[in-house]
Write a protein that binds this DNA or RNA. Structure first.
Lengths: 210, 210
DNA sequence: AACGACATTACCCATTTGGGTGATTTACAT
DNA sequence: ATGTAAATCACCCAAATGGGTAATGTCGTT
């Protein structure tokens, strides 16, 4: 089975030593072959069409266009390209930017090469490899933040706001007067430092409260 | 190293055969031990305090309280408990509900027992194991849906709306009249089938447009 | 050439919202 | 017991919003 596999890989990595080492690991592994390497995103963008990788390994720290910005540009050229970030950075912001821009995996550099091979295999089979610490971040982002400053009642109202419900309707739904709803909304605004429904909803959704 | 590991596991699974098989696999593996098994969420909730698992494997199809609903109840009892879903279901809704409620992993039943052991090890080490198809769903949820019905200009306005900006300010920002902004907003409402800023923002955010 | 989508602007009007101030009651914690 | 937070309600007023209708110019497609 394994011998029938032949995964074509391109690598974008500006550090020649790391690139060489990656290339060696992959070429020596059964079923993997490196069909192209680039020292910059620009080089990859220009020449990728000549190679036809199943998977592209992409560094973040690159001269010129960063790996993060390169993702969407590469995807525009080859929408079906599977991009896996391969970097030392574990900052949430970078992780989420990468995934948001269309990366299908995020591996942390320097872990066992066995994991790298396994990750690439996963991509090839339709998976989405992530290093454990990355996976934990990703999973954590789904959990609503519980440090809510808002009271239960205020959360109920906020929920209604996000449905576009107006004060009168909310009041009916909660069996109180519209004045009460107004009061709740004013408190919500104070606590969230906003001054409109749209902004309140936006902030709450970004924080994962609703 | 491996021999120093001893991961204590509890299992909630109503199918006696599957439970037995899981128990066998885990107990026979070096460094794993099953310290408790339950046939229902209710049983787990009542007796979990007597066991002290590092990881709890949780089925979804259970008599009475479902696995999904059990997550938050179990977490309330033991906030530090690491819950991994172990189920046949791959439906997005269930996956996201589980993660939303606080599960740290989601494994699909029936895959190689090697992956199960690896997954549990990952949880123990702070990771978040997911079966490949689940990981792909999770990653995909980060990519903004691009089938936007809105025009570029409308997207700009929508973005401003989500910041709580009012028509006058948006008009200034985009160097057009407030009447124009009103027109754009009306079109946004028509296209999104909403009739307030808050609802438009909410819908757009849910769809991952902003 | 005609059509539709987009961007722009205008006017009118009823309704809603946001902000300010103030009051009562309950409940929980210091 | 005293205070604080929560939930409830009222009144006022200026500003913003939502909905309707209508017009113009540009651009790309058919």
């Amino acid at each position: 089975m394994k011998s029938t596999l032949n995964i074509k890989i391109c690598i974008v990595e500006d550090d020649a030593l790391i690139l060489k080492s990656l290339q060696q690991v992959l070429n020596n592994a059964e079923g993997f072959s490196v069909t192209g390497t680039f020292f910059s995103a620009e080089a990859a963008l220009e020449n990728l069409k000549d190679h036809h990788p199943d998977v592209l390994l992409l560094d973040i720290d690159l001269p010129g266009i960063s790996g993060i910005d390169a993702i969407s540009k590469l995807k525009k050229l080859q929408p079906e390209l599977n991009i896996v970030m391969l970097t030392v950075h574990e900052e949430s912001q970078l992780v989420f930017s990468a995934l948001h821009n269309g990366a299908v995996g995020y591996l942390v550099k320097g872990s066992n090469s066995k994991y790298l091979l396994q990750g690439i295999r996963e991509v090839f089979e339709g998976g989405a490899p992530m290093s454990p610490s990355i996976a934990r971040q990703v999973i954590a982002s789904f959990k609503p933040q519980t440090e809510t400053i808002l009271s239960n009642r205020e959360m109920e109202v906020l929920q209604k706001l996000s449905n576009g419900t107006n004060n009168k309707q909310i009041a009916e739904d909660l069996f109180v007067s519209t004045n009460t709803i107004k009061a709740h909304i004013k408190n919500i605004y104070k606590k969230l430092h906003v001054n409109s429904r749209a902004e309140a909803v936006s902030k709450a959704m970004k924080k994962g409260w609703i």
